[in-house]
Each structure stands twice: as structure tokens, then as C-alpha cells.
Amino acid sequence: MSEAAVKIAIRGLSKSFGANHVLTELDLDIRDGESLVIIGASGTGKSVLLKNIVGILTPDSGSIKIAGEEVVGVTGNSRDRINRKLGMLFQGAALFDSLPLWENAAFGLMSSHRMGRDEARKKAIDFLKQVGLSEADANRYPSDISAGAQKRVGLARAIATEPEILFFDEPTTGIDPVMGDIIDSLIVSCVRNLGATALTITHDMESARRIGDRVAMIYEGKIVWVGDVAEIDDSGNAFIHQFIHGSVEGPMASLIAANASV
């Protein structure tokens, strides 16, 4: 694959917490304009990988290039400049409790894009409408709305700055299947409308099939399979087979036993 076609290039990424080696020499390419979904069991390093890419965690070693620019070790204003290209929907939405919904959605516009409050509010309301909320909801607070609605606001916040790359951390976790379907559809349409590159972390296979162009499977801190969504059922990979069939028997048996004992 040519370097120009790769939006995010990860090489030899390692991250440990004490004696717990979460990521070990992980390599992954995310192509420009694609929607890549990373699947894997709990505790395999999915969220840690995502947090390393967006700069919340710093890797122990390895390289992460976003649009050709090395981001490991970059801090301060330089990191802020890189982060302006990114948007992220957190697992629990991570909305700011003290701010009304419109201000949550407009946060990036006002803080990093220096937009005035009135203009940011108008734009935020447009984005809230895009994700299925009304103008009347704009002045409500996160504690006043359901988990599904919070995810919608989180999505509006992620896309409001029209980023080049979108990250979705477990977008359907904690919400009912119908709302999960709606959120997935919103994600697909938002990514398409923005022409953005998307990276989604999930263990929900239905969601992965709906959102992704390609799927990567992570196990014990390494990518063990990458392929198109259409190939997933006939991958011939034992990890993928065990994961999509939810089987106890298979190469991930030790991890399942470890998770069960916690």
C-alpha cells in the first residue's frame, strides 16, 4: 500500500501498565477515507490502542503517523493542532455535565476553532438536528436525557468541527438494539457526508458489519487478522471464527478464563 493512501500508520506500538503488557509491537494501517472497525474481546487492548492514537495515553514505544505526521511524543499546541483534525465519540458519551446540550455540541467550535457563541450555537443546533434531536432539546442538560440521546449529542460534538478522522469507542454499548441500529446509521451517514476516515472500536459484530468497510481483530495486544467486512465469515482465521460465533472453545480460551476469574 502506498504511504499516501494511508491516513493512520501504526508501527511497533507497545504499551504496558506495570507488568501488564496491553499492546505489543502492534502494526496497523488505516486507509484514507475508509471505515475500519477493530473488534476483540474485553481486555485485549482496543480502547488502549484508541487512546494512544488520540493522545490520551502515551505509548512506551512505536510510531503513530496521522496524515504522514508523527504524533508520538507531540504535546502542547502541536498536539492541539493535530487533534483539530480528529473527532471522537466516547463509550459513555463523556458529555460535560455542567453545559447544556448545544454547548456540548459546540464545544470544539468555540474552544479550538474560536467561533463566537451565537454562531457556534446556530451551528450546534444544526448538528443536533442531524443526529435526530430538536432545537427544543438544545438547552437541556446531559442528565435530562437518555443514554441513547447522550450518544447522539456525543456524535454531534464529534462531527461539529468537521474533522478528517472520526473515532468511535464502543458506540452501541449500553443502549438497546434499536437505538444501536440508529446510532450505527447515523455514524455511517456522518462519516459519508464528511468524507472522513473512521476508526471504530467494538465487540458488537452486528454494529461492526453495519459500520465497517474493513475489520481488524486484536488479541493480546496484536492485530491477528485484517480483512474486508464481506470476508469475515469465510476468513479461515481461528480467532475470528471463535469471536463471531461467541464460542468458549478456541485460541482465546485462556483470555476468556482470565476474564471469567476476575
Binding site: I56, M88, S111
Partner: peptide, 19 residues
């Protein structure tokens, strides 16, 4: 307040919003 923001990833969200 800040502790709740930490455990609910609101502080992480601030970082990703270049704040």
C-alpha cells in the same frame, strides 16, 4: 466535580477537543 469528570472520561474528551 473534577473526579467525576475524570472517571466519566470528560477530561479525556477535553483533550481530544484541543482544550
Amino acid at each position: 466535580e473534577i473526579g467525576t469528570m475524570r472517571v466519566t472520561e470528560q477530561i479525556d474528551a477535553l483533550s481530544t477537543l484541543s482544550t
